[in-house]
Design a protein around this nucleic acid. Sequence first.
RNA 1: GGGUCGUUAGCUCAGCUGGUCAGAGCGUCUGGUUUACACCCAGAAGGUCGGGGGUUCGAGCCCCUCACGACCCACCA
Length: 896
Amino acid sequence: MTDTASRPDAQTSIPDRPSLEGLEEKWDGVWSEQQLYAFDEDTTRDQVFSVDTPPPTASGSLHIGHVFGYSQADMIVRYQRMRGKNCFYPLGWDDNGLPTERRAQNYYGVRCDPSLPYDPDFTPPQEGGSNKSSKAANQVPISRRNFIELCERLTTLDEKSFEEVFRTLGLSVDWNHSYQTIDARSRATSQRAFLENLAAGQAYQSEAPTMWDVTYRTAVAQAEQEDRERDGAYHRIGFTRTNAAENAESTVYIETTRPELLPACVALVAHPDDERYQDLFGTTVTSPLFGVEVPVKAHPLAQADKGAGIAMICTFGDSTDVVWWRELELPTRSVIGRDGRFLPEAPWITTPEGQAAYAELVGLTVFSAQKRVVEMVKESGDLVGEPTKISHPVKFYENGDKPLEFVTSRQWYLTNGGRDSSEGGLRDELISRGQELTWHPAYMESRYRNWVEGLAGDWLISRQRFYGVPFPVWYAVGEDGETDYDTVLTPAVEDLPIDPTIDVPAGYSEAQRNQPGGFVADPDILDTWATSSLSPQLAGGWNSGAESGGLFEKVYPMDLRPQGHDIIRTWLFSTIVRSHLQQDALPWKHASINGWILDPDRKKMSKSKGNVVTPIGLLHQHGSDGVRYWAGRARQGVDTAFDEGQMKIGRRLAIKILNASKFALGFGEAPADPAGRLAADPAVVTDPLDRALLAQLATVVEQATAAFEEMDYARSLEVVEPFFWAFCDDYIELVKERAHGNSPAGEAGAASARAALAIALEVQLRLFAPVVVFATEEVWSWWRDGSVHTQPWPEAAPLREAAQGQDAALVDSVAQAAIVVRRLKSDAKVSQKTPVLSVTVEAPGSALAHLEAAAADLTALGRIEALELVAGEGEEIRTRDAVLGEPPVKQPRNKG
RNA sequence: GGGUCGUUAGCUCAGCUGGUCAGAGCGUCUGGUUUACACCCAGAAGGUCGGGGGUUCGAGCCCCUCACGACCCACCA
């Protein structure tokens, strides 16, 4: 029996009642054990399809949006694997950074206090706290090292449960190449990249006003900021002219939403062309309450139609203030500290009254200080009328809940084109990189370009946090005890990763730490994006030591970056920046952008809802194939409604694949294809209907292939799925009597049907395999060797040859005839089993030949005793002169 | 204010370079227990393709404009 396609015991391997239950666990186990998706390192770049998979943030729970995006990427990868590519498809974890810190704080009820010593026996006060923020007062302060240990413990837990979900989902990830953005190799890679940027002049420090989150006490990069609409109010406040002319008003009124910044005022500004303020330019005015004399300046950024047309410049209320401060060369008068409270000293306020007023604000939060200042200007009469309530956008850190403030501090920056808009400069180069990349869908490129063109400065990469990759630098301390930030001490590359707060720079001893003539560590950590932006280098082993002929050369630049459109400005852009600076290359050829999951009411899926409907719950309820189907029906980049209805349809499809396969295989075996290209010998496929089916299938294969070549899994599914249902409901129904051998066509007709069924089924299993991964694998195991997921993608050519030039339209003609015959019975409201004693079917000339060729199958399906086929007038196939017989006697369903 | 995407049957969506393009599934309704599947099958009803102009022999498909929705960006006094 070695010359048959089916194994001798094939029939016995088909279960009586096929089911989806348990398939995920069963096949994940098999694939894992067989290392089915392992990358073969004995390879060359041209054989590889490499994927820069998003490392999920390991903080909390997976969202249904993850399942959506990762499924879509997996479909593309599975297609490439079937096309013979050696797929490099790792999945890492992004576990450093603020989300992890916050989660560890809440989970264990602790907070980091770097001044505390390490306690090796520390036990956290709680385990498994809620995601809700607990009061800081209830959190136990612990050392940085203890805190980091807890972060690591927690992320390990999370990563395990995430992997479980992804395995259940059937992602064909190679888990051997996993990484964590906090692991030693990642830290070394990130630090090495930074040091090379530093050496190349791409990384630099600067002391400047930066956006600052007062809750987390850290600087925040432009990409992490977002606008939120907040209530505010215009306060109309008068400044007194210092030397008013005889006939002029002695008071100048400004309008401000930040009255608490009155003590930080350094100037007033109006547009140079504004008629109203011409005589004020060059003069000075005195601030109310604080009695500080400030100049009145002209600057084109001031808008005559906004507020009073003249604005108060403070250090700093917003980014316009920063521009004015810089361009008008104004002094710095900071009143807000890093904790968001008013600073104890304001030495530029010299009058006793002013000092007394300021003393009222010291230590207050911005919110309280505003209330107090408003009270004071009301009392003093400097406030005109009632404040006018408005709603306006305010900048927030995306994870924060208090408005950002400007704080002047020393920070590290990485060039990203934000300060180089010169012709052909870095910004232009990065825009060109975006054009070089193939975007799916193409219009996403404009989002990228839009963002790069709008950059306001370089990338601020330092964070004043604890759980992350430390800056691998120290600074020399002068004999005077002052830190010399210009003398940056760096470690040797081979010593990486280092922690400068623990390790000591070459030529120094630990005793010299923080001493005059010694050194100090940089206390900051790198922005989490500054490490995750190196994901191609991390996954590909750029820093593994084997530079030449190693893994990196075999996988980089990568083929595909799949990700969401919300992080084009962050992850996608920063990855391009790093690869451009580091490798002078585009990190990948393609970017596949997936959409967001929306509530059924079209709003962005809320976090709370996403936690109620857990991915693992959905996978169990609808089956992973059902959930994958939902993802597979959605096109790339398109925001998609969360729709369990689609998952149910997917589940039904998977079940149908099991049942239809069982049935199609149950008619008996077909001889194997001597050429080995098809599941059965095409030479025995002689019936016109069977040949027509294979001709149709050839077209389906062509369309599905073309779609997948464009990474358009959705279009492929859209073609394959309807074909499959028609295959089940029409073709199988038409040929089942013949396949059983109960037909005038006899044994040859039966063999033809069985061979066509085997061929068509096998091809369809492969077409479905990238999406419906478990059901197809299950069926494959019933009668074929190996895994469907490592089979070659089907080709149209052998199907066309098997079709022997038969017109594919024959299938449609016969299916149409079947419909009209069924309708006879449907309209008569009788069982489809009811015999048709006689009927005449009219068909247009072309279809008539088709019906004649398949007349035997048609009469079997319709239980037609006397069928007459005639040429009809119109374009449609129709029946006439039908005589129905007696409906069959109903049999009891369960006999015996 | 700038940019991008979308608006097609009750719902979720296909309709690729303009000419069987008015479709699918779900839902609804009417029927059928056809031993692969009731996690099934058959049949039917449902839309002037957001509004208004224009180009064309011909427009969901191209152009203009308006409306609505979503997202991104913007110097937010």
